[in-house]
């Protein structure tokens, strides 16, 4: 590629938007992880698998409705609920019995869950590549800065802030949200005032997983849905949550932006090593601020 052409304003601008829309997907997924981390203090390694289940469920629902626009919207609505249900079952049947145990055991449980869910997805949906089509008005591209920009990405740019605002309203304005925030800071206190902490944890876990499913459903039209997408996202999610400050929602947003943008600009500057840039950014941030950029809730 001709270097001079690569760095035009238009190219930078469109890469910026690409990065931004990628950041929105990452934010939806990571905010869920961050939420679970904040309340339960466990990095949920199975989060990526739930994201994958979200994408596959979206595919199945979409196919069930003859790949129509209705199917797409239903998929977007129902797939996260499927994921929430799966997570609720896992939480009530197994996970909730471990809350008193060593922290590492909780972490390992989520890893076991990842192994199991990963194979279950393979059992149910097989190893083929699947894809989903967005409704007609979200297909194709429009011209921004003189270069084509997918309409679906614009849609993502709208969804991301909606999720952020929704989550903020939930944690700050509703009673359940306030309780879960309090549980994150001081769980003994919440237990002492007569709230069933176990159910608060269950609720937080399910909401976090719902967001993973939503992320999966949202990303489905932009990628090929296949096994292995859990592995790709989970480390990114881990790192985003960490650099933001564990459990801090706004930190997660900043982390997602950094990850998405360094990745998309990396493609522009040095395509071969584009995937290296976000990791470098993470390393620099963690060395500069070892506990993340914003205040951790821990």
């Amino acid at each position: 590629m001709d270097i001079g052409q690569a760095f035009t304003f238009a190219a930078l601008g469109s890469q910026f938007l690409v990065g931004l829309s990628r950041a929105m997907i990452l934010f939806v997924v990571c905010s869920g992880m961050s939420f679970v981390l904040g309340v339960l203090r466990v990095p949920n390694i199975a989060h990526g698998s739930l994201y994958m289940i979200g994408a596959f469920s979206a595919y199945s629902i979409f196919t069930l409705f003859g790949q129509s626009s209705t199917g797409f919207w239903l998929a977007l609505f129902l797939a996260p609920l499927v994921v929430a249900l799966v997570s609720l079952i896992a939480e009530r049947a197994l996970f909730c019995h471990l809350y008193e145990r060593e922290h590492l055991m909780l972490l390992l449980f989520t890893f076991a869950l990842m192994l199991i869910l990963g194979d279950l997805v393979k059992l149910i949906w097989g190893a083929e590549y699947r894809s989903i089509m967005a409704p007609p008005f979200l297909r194709g591209s429009i011209s921004i800065f003189g270069s084509p920009f997918p309409r679906y990405n614009l849609f993502l740019l709208i969804i991301g802030p909606i999720v952020a605002i929704g989550l903020w309203l939930f944690t700050n304005k509703t009673k359940i949200g306030k309780i879960s925030r309090a549980a994150a800071v001081d769980r003994e206190m919440v237990g002492a005032v007569g709230i069933n902490v176990s159910w608060v944890f269950a609720g937080a876990f399910v909401i976090g997983c719902y967001l993973a499913g939503l992320g999966g459903a949202l990303v489905a039209p932009t990628v090929s849905v296949t096994i292995g997408m859990d592995h790709d996202i989970i480390i990114e999610a881990f790192l985003i949550v960490t650099i933001g400050g564990l459990g801090n929602m706004w930190g997660t947003l900043v982390g997602s932006l950094i990850f998405g943008l360094t990745q998309s600009f990396g493609v522009l500057f040095w395509p071969q090593f584009a995937i290296v840039f976000p990791y470098v950014a993470v390393v620099v941030i963690l060395i500069w601020r070892p506990t993340g950029m914003l205040k951790s809730v821990w």
Binding site: L108, F109, M114, G118, D119, L123
Partner: peptide
């Protein structure tokens, strides 16, 4: 599906043989 079995073993381990 051997990772599935590994996952199940791991869960058994967490619950019964920490």
């Amino acid at each position: 599906y051997w990772t599935l079995i590994l996952g199940v073993i791991l869960i058994l381990l967490i619950f019964f043989l920490p």
